[in-house]
């Protein structure tokens, strides 16, 4: 079961600053443990929605660290807007969470 996620979205005048923290092992598939390769396991797609409208779609790779942090700036926005962020990894596992803009 995927670990927790945390979103922090703040209105900063003319834009909204969105930060998201995700728990994920982000295995490259190149690391060995006890002589055996650890299979690749990483987030492939990230979607950011504000009030149901997709504002960011990202494709990510093994180059990103374990438990990554992402930050986005979205033009405009209002306090109370719902930000929903979800990810899907190469094993088909997924997770999503939402938070209101503060």
């Amino acid at each position: 079961m995927p670990g927790p996620m945390k979103i922090r979205a703040t209105l900063k005048g003319s834009y909204t600053d969105i930060r998201v923290l995700m728990s994920h092992p982000m295995e490259t598939g190149l690391r060995k443990a006890q002589g055996k390769l650890v299979p690749a396991h990483f987030i492939e797609n990230i979607t950011v929605k504000v009030n149901g409208k997709t504002v960011v779609k990202a494709q990510t790779s093994q180059a990103i660290s374990r438990n990554p942090v992402f930050a986005f700036r979205v033009k405009g926005g209002n306090k109370g807007d719902m930000v929903e962020i979800g990810w899907v990894d190469n094993k088909g596992e997924s997770n999503k969470t939402e938070a209101a803009v503060a």
């Binding site: 670990g3 927790p4 728990s23 942090v69």
Partner: peptide, 12 residues
Amino acid sequence: AEGSPVELFELE
């Protein structure tokens, strides 16, 4: 320290 994964440990 900004956006540190330590918050994930607090949640778990």
